[in-house]
Amino acid sequence: MRRSRRASREPEVDPFYDMLFNMLIAFVFCFIVALLAMNPQKTKAGDVPAKAEYIVTLSWPDNDPNDLDAWVQGPNGDVVWFRQREAGLLHLDRDDRGVSNDTIVVDGRRIVNPINQEVVTLRGIAPGEYVVNVHYYDGSKNQRTEPGAGGPVAATVSVVKVNPRAEVVFHGTQTLAGPGTEVTMVRFTVQADGGATNINTMPKALVKRI
């Protein structure tokens, strides 16, 4: 009976194998730590590259069918607009054409994005004066048939300094009377340290010079 009970028991694990298994776990752990040490994650504020220094946003009422365009001139005289989406450090990230590009068809259903907004970013510090204008584009015949097309539109422009923290440099609204209207929303000067000064709304035409 004693022999049968001893034979039915599972064989004991050799301590040598336990030691090998523990050594393997330790080796894997040390390897992972070494990898992390060679490729440290950059968590400091200055280590993460910024995508923009300034963000200029043009918006007008939701569902408005009209097309407003942002025109931004940099210190070197180059202008960003819908046919010139990059000029130096200035980039037109979004061109909104009112009702023209706000509608898509999915599974036979018409889906409308009501938000009207254009975004221009300054992706670096280039000292000098910047001019932000809004132009009321004379849309296509199809666009003019939409209710409210061709009427006055209230345009709102905000200029936000992004780094090292978000700071509203300018926020204002002007009404554009009709197609062809151009208004200067704001002019400001970026200093070498990234700060903004000389904020004003003195008119300067940009559309006619293109």
Rank of each mutant, 00 (worst) to 15 (best):
S100P: 01
R83L: 10
D102I: 00
R6N: 15
H171F: 04
V207E: 10
D95S: 02
G148I: 09
D78C: 01
V153P: 07
R209M: 07
G46F: 00
P49Y: 14
Q41L: 07
G46V: 00
Y136K: 02
M1S: 15
F16W: 04
K204T: 14
I25R: 14
L68D: 12
V168G: 12
V80A: 04
V169S: 13
I111A: 12
G74L: 03
L90V: 11
P114M: 05
R144S: 14
G172P: 06
Y137P: 02
D193E: 05
G194I: 02
N198E: 14
I104N: 07
A26R: 07
A87N: 07
T121A: 05
T57C: 06
R94C: 06
V169H: 13
V28C: 12
A196C: 12
L36M: 12
A126R: 08
A45V: 15
R209G: 04
A192Y: 06
P65I: 06
P152V: 11
V132N: 01
L122K: 08
G178R: 08
V160H: 06
Q117R: 05
A155H: 00
D18L: 08
A126E: 13
D95Q: 00
V186Y: 10
P15H: 04
R187K: 05
R85H: 04
G194K: 01
E146Y: 15
R123H: 11
G178D: 11
A26K: 11
L122M: 10
V131R: 01
D67V: 02
A205H: 10
V186Q: 02
T189I: 03
E167R: 15
V80G: 11
Q73M: 13
T145V: 15
I125S: 02
K51T: 11
N116W: 01
A26H: 04
W71E: 00
Q191K: 10
N63W: 00
V132C: 05
F16V: 02
I111W: 03
S4E: 08
T181Y: 01
P75G: 11
T173S: 03
M19S: 03
N133L: 02
R209D: 15
G178E: 13
L89Q: 06
P127M: 15
G178F: 13
G77N: 09
R3Y: 13
V106K: 14
A166D: 06
D96F: 05
V207W: 05
P127I: 14
A192I: 12
T181A: 09
F82D: 04
P114L: 00
